[in-house]
Amino acid sequence: MNSDFVVAVHSLVLLAYTPERLRTSDNIANSVSIHPVRIRKVLSTLRKGGYIQSKEGAKGGFYLTRDPASITLAELYTLTSEGTLKPKWPDANPSCPIGAHIERAMDDIFATGEKQLEAHFQHYTIADVLQRVHNESL
């Protein structure tokens, strides 16, 4: 899994937390504690996916275009990280009986694990994460 997933979840939960307020990329970056350029890359992906829109101008910023209860973590995983569960294997010795075949032997294991992860994420929405954050702050 790459960090785009957690950055996307964090960003959407922040936007859901104050739906009446537009958030700039700098504001979101400050909450996530990463560089605004990195936030803009993830926000661009979310915009193309139809999850957010932006308003230009001095009082502009980003806002959700979907109900947080309708956005599953599975959707966001697919959008930002699908195929990243499998690690990059080192260049193994092709003369070794293990090294020559280990990556292909593990491919199905990672593919199955990713499907199970996506199925698990299907049970959680941005609204659920926001509620969990709220519960943690009590």
Rank of each mutant, 00 (worst) to 15 (best):
M106P: 01
V6A: 07
L15H: 08
S11M: 06
T125R: 11
P97K: 01
Q116W: 05
I126Y: 10
L85Y: 03
A74E: 10
H35Y: 08
F110D: 01
I34Y: 05
Q116M: 09
P36G: 11
K115Q: 11
N30V: 02
Q116F: 08
V129Q: 06
A92S: 05
I52C: 14
Y124N: 07
G49E: 02
L15D: 07
V32I: 09
N2T: 07
R47D: 02
R23Y: 08
L130N: 05
A58Q: 05
K86V: 00
P68S: 06
C96T: 01
L12P: 01
D67Q: 13
F5C: 04
H120V: 11
S44C: 06
S54Q: 15
Y124C: 07
P19L: 12
V42H: 01
P36W: 10
P19Q: 09
V133M: 06
Q131L: 13
S95A: 13
Q131S: 15
H120L: 15
E56K: 15
D107Q: 08
F62E: 00
D107F: 07
V6Q: 04
A119F: 05
V32F: 00
D4K: 10
K41Q: 15
R47N: 04
H120Y: 14
Y124W: 15
R47K: 12
V6R: 07
S11R: 00
V129K: 08
I34C: 10
N135F: 10
V42W: 01
C96D: 14
V13R: 08
D91Q: 14
S54M: 13
A111H: 06
S54D: 15
A69H: 13
R47T: 02
H10Y: 02
R40K: 12
E56A: 15
K88Q: 09
D91R: 14
T65Y: 03
I102N: 07
Q131A: 15
K48F: 04
P36N: 11
K55A: 08
V9D: 00
R47S: 08
R104E: 13
S95G: 14
T65Q: 11
Q116C: 05
V42M: 02
E20R: 15
F5I: 06
Y124R: 12
W89H: 14
